[in-house]
Design a protein around this nucleic acid. Sequence first.
RNA 1: CGGGGCGUAGCGCAGUUUGGUAGCGCGCACGGUUCGGGACCGUGAGGUCGGAGGUUCAAAUCCUCUCGCCCCGACCA
Length: 626
Amino acid sequence: MRVASSISFMDCTSPTGRRPSRAGAPAPRGASPFRLAGAIEGAMRFSQAFIPTVKEVPKDAVDASHILLLRGGYIRMIGSGIYEMLPLGQRVLKKISSIIRDEMDASGAQEVLMPAILPASYFQETGRWDVYGDVLMRLKDRRGGDYHLGPTHEEIITDMIRREVKSYRQLPQLLYQVQMKYRDEPRPRAGLLRCREFLMKDCYSFDVDIDAARNSYEKMRETYVRIFDRLGLGYRVVEADSGSIGGDTSAEFQVLAQSGEDAIVACTRCDYAANVEIAESKQDETGDVDHSKTPERELVETPGAKTIEQVVAFFQKRDADFSAKRTIKSLMVAYGDEQAPSFAMALVRGDHELNEIKLARALGVDEVRLASDEEVGRLLRCKTGYVGPILQEAATFDGKVFADPAVAALADAVCGAAKTQYHYEHVALGRDFEAEVTPLRQVAAGDLCVKCGGALESYRGIEGGHIFILGTHYSSKMNATYLDEKGESVPIVMGCYGIGVSRLMAAAIEQHHDDDGIRWPMPIAPFQAVVLALGNDDEVQKEAEQIYERLRAAGVEVLFDDREERPGVKFKDADLIGIPIRVTLGKRSLDQGRAEVKLRDQKEPELFPIGDIVAQVTRVITEAGS
RNA sequence: CGGGGCGUAGCGCAGUUUGGUAGCGCGCACGGUUCGGGACCGUGAGGUCGGAGGUUCAAAUCCUCUCGCCCCGACCA
């Protein structure tokens, strides 16, 4: 065992593993006036910490953040999509939420805490008890009453507000909470990125009218920008679909990462950025398509050519220049009542993808789905793969047909003949078939920006935050009204603003890691620095301990690796856990009166006189900001 | 919900085809040697083979049912 240092009184436990006596603890914990900005309480000895790192890759983990959180001893899974936070994980969560709380408070929002377990009546009031379906974690109490765990809290907070707010004088209000949310996801995956229980900061604004609500929304947008900046994450604010939460205006804060679930496009020239679900690009030229020279339509037998790829391969045999850009992809979709669905046909150019959300909007419905093979057969009398807008006689389909502008721009195209094993050659919209022209396709890299005409780039992102103007969607359903100056009853205008706290912890790793482990941005690292004492030389141990004590006295969150482990083990663990600053002391450097400082982001260490270490470390932390 | 895969020691895996003493690596405990990038030698502890039922003299292994986990898709603030 190590020799106790005379200044180790602030330790959680003494080096002997026993608690220090009260009398020996002059400074109350958490009272250090020297704490650096962004620091949370705590320094720790590795030998006494609960940091169970593992060498081998857990078999069920695939994503970098999942693997590293498990290996680094941050989290453990106890059920599908349900995780425990170990001390390191909890520290990171605390740091992220304290930055969030700091900025939320600064924006004027007030923190509340609502229950996680909710009586069914609130969601029944807005219809979400049914709409949310299987995603709601439902329970019954002993008397058979219906309850559920909160997936989000619009109804509850709207109720809180409607009971108390009666007058315009009581508005605006801006309330938030940091709380566990529960969603029975169809498929939890990727560790903390998609859980059934997750930590979320949710905030709700209540305003007198839409203009005031826009103000709140703008204020939150700015607050979010400050939060994401402070977290040290690379992100884009993108226009987004509002989804099932309702409302019109919304923006997502997307943490950029190759492994992200969401595809987004961003302009290389201006600030336009959007989720591909709703992204638009500059309209393709559609005016004056000249098909006067287009040859007569021709029915071609195309055995086995079911996919665009196969069709292209078939026509390339005659014309080497033929490409998917000269084909029309025809898709049958079903919408409306699932018992008796309606059908529509969507046409996009062969090299484009259909955006179902855009099609749904064109149809004026919430969602559409691709028609089944059986449905296509019944409506068109042909197999999928040969669908086309020019129907054969036996077809019974009489729904709407929509075409993307890029299809309208084709003067001489190939499309399915709506007859199994056949395609048409030389067809053109307006001559051979009719369709309503509206943007339907998924925007892709290289398309032109709707705002400025610049080229769009594509990224992948992880949705870390989402802000919405809800309007009166909830307040009108729940009768949350106030009396205005004229004494008239008016529905409150709402907004809601979420940040996935636990998800951000994983997102940060997806964005910041290498082969050796995590590379935490300074503001959210569980510790700012780690001190490694190498070898079992008494002098080295003593000196390293002094450095550790001086760092903590200076307010640095520091982990002291005092374990009786070989150097390699300590280096590997330090890299894995991902602490930004590593201070290493070994016999060699001690003999020169020096210790080594290495940043997790850098390859090479730097040697400094031992007396300068504290200054160096605090300088790096200060420069990293938070 | 559709498709695929996997459940054997704390972790990672072999053993299942062809039924017959449950194994390996890591980790853990003890002793020794080592000590700047996951050391080495020796000794040792640790397993209802996911669960239930069945076939059999005999089941990790064959059959039936069931539970759980992962991946792809569908879905998703």
